[in-house]
């Protein structure tokens, strides 16, 4: 194994882990507020769809590449957030079972996006296609630091969205732990009755938690569309949403341990690929590598699930009028 491979493991690992991480942060917002969110998978897909659609339209209108990407990420966040409203309404207004609602949101997202992709391709672009082709995002290499062995890889071929994610993660931490909004949101996940009695609006906080998870998931979906997929299509539903859920469960619903979990997934995946390459195995073997993050998830869950403590009021339907 040479240094180049180690570099590749780090570069690919980071570009896969960070989108998982930002999606997991979204999940933490939702679950810390007390709403179970299994809908991340669908939210990231819907976000990526809206973002990719915006990018395709902008590109067709001749917008420059950089502003297209800004637009794509903005729309992905908005699209994910809006679609998350559906989960919020189902859970909060219609008091649906939150697990079922999450899965429904996912199934509906898959159906809607694949249908709309085809319809839009046919009606607007006259093409029979089930995808929106996107250009792979440009990568940035920080001069100087990047030439440090191994460590430099973290500053080599970095997607711009990785920087965005780190900035967003810091903001998310600040909001969650330093602001009144964060204090009340987290309180909802433990005892919504306390927030209600203290004059907080539980439904609004629940709603905010879910919508934030949608926006962040949308951004994550767009990251995948702009990196490993280079398109939007049904291939976006690879279970990454569920991986990030597993991520914050290991992370015990706090940010830094969640980051660590996501990094483990990312590096497991990228090392696997490098290994297949190194051993010169046929491409079918990469299928086996693909399962590494999933197997790892199961194993980690076996060791950590019992210890970790979910927010106390998670999944409870909060009914103000209950006495």
């Amino acid at each position: 194994m040479n240094i180049n491979m180690i570099n590749n493991i780090i570069i690919d690992g980071m570009s896969f882990s960070l989108p998982l991480f930002i999606m997991a942060i979204g999940g933490i917002f939702s679950e810390k507020s007390g709403i179970t969110n299994l809908a991340l998978e669908g939210l990231q897909g819907m976000g990526a769809f809206i973002g990719a659609l915006a990018a395709t339209l902008a590109a067709a209108a001749g917008a420059p590449d950089a502003s297209t990407k800004v637009l794509a990420f903005t729309f992905a966040a908005v699209g994910g957030g809006l679609y998350a409203c559906l989960h919020a309404v189902l859970c909060i207004r219609f008091k649906a079972n939150q697990v079922i609602s999450g899965v429904v949101i996912n199934i509906l997202a898959m159906a809607l996006t694949s249908f709309l992709t085809k319809v839009i391709n046919r009606t607007m672009f006259g093409a029979a296609s089930d995808k929106f082709i996107l250009t792979v995002s440009k990568r940035i290499t920080v001069p100087g630091i990047s030439s440090i062995p191994v460590l430099g890889a973290f500053f080599t071929s970095v997607y711009p969205f990785e920087i965005l994610i780190i900035v967003l993660a810091v903001i998310a931490w600040f909001v969650l732990y330093k602001t009144t909004f964060g204090l009340r949101l987290r309180a909802c996940g433990d005892n919504p009755g306390a927030v209600d009695a203290a004059g907080g609006d539980v439904a609004k906080l629940h709603f905010a938690g879910v919508v934030i998870s949608g926006a962040l998931s949308g951004i994550a979906g767009m990251c995948f569309a702009y990196s490993i997929l280079a398109k939007f299509s049904g291939d976006i539903y690879m279970g990454y949403g569920y991986l990030s859920i597993a991520g914050y469960i290991f992370g015990n619903w706090s940010l830094l341990p969640t980051l660590a979990a996501c990094l483990i997934f990312g590096f497991a995946r990228s090392s696997g690929y490098q290994l297949v390459k190194l051993l010169g195995m046929p491409s079918a073997y990469s299928d086996l590598v693909m399962i590494l993050p999933y197997v790892l998830t199961l194993l980690l869950l076996v060791f950590l699930s019992k210890k970790n403590q979910a927010p106390k009021a998670l999944g409870e339907i909060y009914d103000k009028s209950k006495r």
């Binding site: 987290r186 309180a187 433990d190 005892n191 306390a194 927030v195 009695a197 203290a198």
Partner: peptide, 21 residues
Amino acid sequence: HQHFKLVSNYTIAQNIILGAE
């Protein structure tokens, strides 16, 4: 309230200021 409305994993101070921070 008869059943206390307190957030179990918050400090006493955080509980007191909640809603009137």
